[in-house]
Computed example of a mutant assay.
Amino acid sequence: MVGVAEKTVTVVVPSLLAKVTGERRELSVPASGPRSVAEILDDLAADFPVFNRRVRNETGAIRRYVNLYLDGEDIRTLQGPATLVAPGQELLIIQSVAGG
């Protein structure tokens, strides 16, 4: 029997963004096969529109201060939003915080 983790992609959300995901730090996105990072973000945007605005700009590009890592590797060094994510993999979002 295939486990739930094998049919989903886990998206780990930083505490700053958890405020707009109902305080959920881990989100499961259905994935019966490989899906692009952009498609995964589209799915999350449907459920969490404010989350989407904090992660992507009005053109849909990932904001400069938001970093996404697929199983520990920066997607910018892969294929950016076109990077394919397989079921069972983890997408980590890190939002840079400025201050002083």
Rank of each mutant, 00 (worst) to 15 (best):
M1C: 12
V2N: 14
G3R: 15
V4G: 15
A5F: 15
A5C: 13
K7F: 07
K7P: 03
T8P: 11
T8F: 09
V9E: 04
V9H: 11
T10N: 09
V11T: 05
V11E: 04
V12F: 04
P14K: 00
P14A: 06
P14G: 04
S15H: 13
S15W: 10
L16N: 12
L17D: 01
L17A: 02
K19V: 08
V20M: 14
E23A: 04
R24T: 09
R24E: 09
R24M: 14
R25A: 01
R25Q: 06
R25I: 02
E26S: 12
E26Q: 10
E26H: 11
S28A: 13
V29S: 02
V29A: 02
P30R: 09
A31L: 13
S32F: 02
S32W: 04
G33I: 11
G33R: 14
G33N: 12
P34Q: 15
R35N: 05
R35P: 07
R35F: 08
R35Q: 10
S36R: 00
S36M: 01
A38M: 06
E39Y: 05
I40V: 11
I40K: 01
L41E: 04
A45R: 11
A46C: 08
D47S: 08
F48K: 04
F48S: 03
P49Y: 12
V50S: 11
F51I: 10
N52M: 02
N52Y: 06
R54E: 14
R54P: 07
R54M: 14
V55Q: 01
V55C: 03
R56T: 08
N57F: 10
N57A: 15
E58A: 14
G60D: 07
A61D: 11
I62P: 00
Y65G: 13
Y65S: 10
Y65M: 11
V66I: 15
V66L: 14
V66P: 09
V66G: 06
N67I: 07
L68E: 02
Y69N: 00
D71S: 10
G72M: 09
E73F: 06
E73R: 13
E73G: 07
E73C: 06
D74H: 03
D74I: 07
R76H: 08
L78N: 00
Q79H: 04
Q79G: 00
G80F: 02
A82I: 01
A82P: 05
T83V: 01
T83W: 06
L84N: 05
V85G: 04
A86E: 13
A86F: 06
A86G: 11
G88Q: 10
L91M: 07
L91A: 00
L91K: 04
L92A: 08
L92D: 07
I93T: 00
I93V: 12
G99K: 09
G99V: 03
G99T: 07
